[in-house]
Amino acid sequence: MTNNLEELLSSLPESNMTVRLLNGLDYLVPGEWTNITSLHLAIREATGEGEEDVIGAIAGRAIELYMDPDNGYQRAVSLYSLVDSASTFAGFTSLAGKLGEDVEWLGFLQNVTPKVETTQAIDAGLKLACELGAFCITNGLPGDSIGDFMGAVANSAKEDKMRLAAWIACDCFLPLGPDFMLKIISTVESAAESDFMQSGLFQRVADFLPGGGVAEKKDLVTNNLKAAEGYVNGFVAEKGMSHEGVLAKIKEVIDVNEDRLDYAAAVIDMSTNYFLHTGTQSVARRVITRAYGEI
């Protein structure tokens, strides 16, 4: 992946399945997200500055800050990237598990893939923990400060809010139903360490998460979920999220059979990279904001 912030933003697609999905879910966080794919525009949007000499100075410093790996911004983008490449695998195992339920011929898949709901729940919890990890890498709050993180999440805006809305809709609500937080927390709490070890996502991101062994990281995921529970449930209630509403938007992007929401979730998981896409935009905003504060 490039270490040039301008190239990084320019490499984001202006239109693809991910962008269509995010546009479809925009109704959950109206006005928060636009698909910004140029550094110049990102600076104007993040700072409200319009003078070219000011924009040029911000760009110069932002490029410098991003390019130096010691600042951690490249690492945060890598983490977002790993979340999505791993979810491709989780999507595959979920789908394979579903096919196994349906078809005797594929019955053996049941034995080699994790139970669907366990996979979904663990991965959903891990994704939220990765969000905490990426936030701490870019903004520097201590890794164990979940209270600070949730304060910041509650204050979050723009791309962060869009990503959180997509996580709630696609990784939680769609596959697990309206009481998803209860399901996720109880699954993660009762999951064995081996369940975590089996998660492709966990294998990829474990090094990025605070804590020594699997047990500590499992605790982090659990505590993070519990800290987020009130906020997430409030979000669902406030937005009046319903299966019909979410599904109607998803159907604009993917042709899915209405009674197979788990398939829809698996297809989205495999065919979009909304964590990396909006995560890149979030990191760019944070670098730009800092550059603006430093010039």
Binding site: E6, E7, I63
Partner: peptide, 11 residues
Amino acid sequence: PQFADAAAAAE
């Protein structure tokens, strides 16, 4: 790219 000079300077 608009900021190629800045990238070269950063490098």
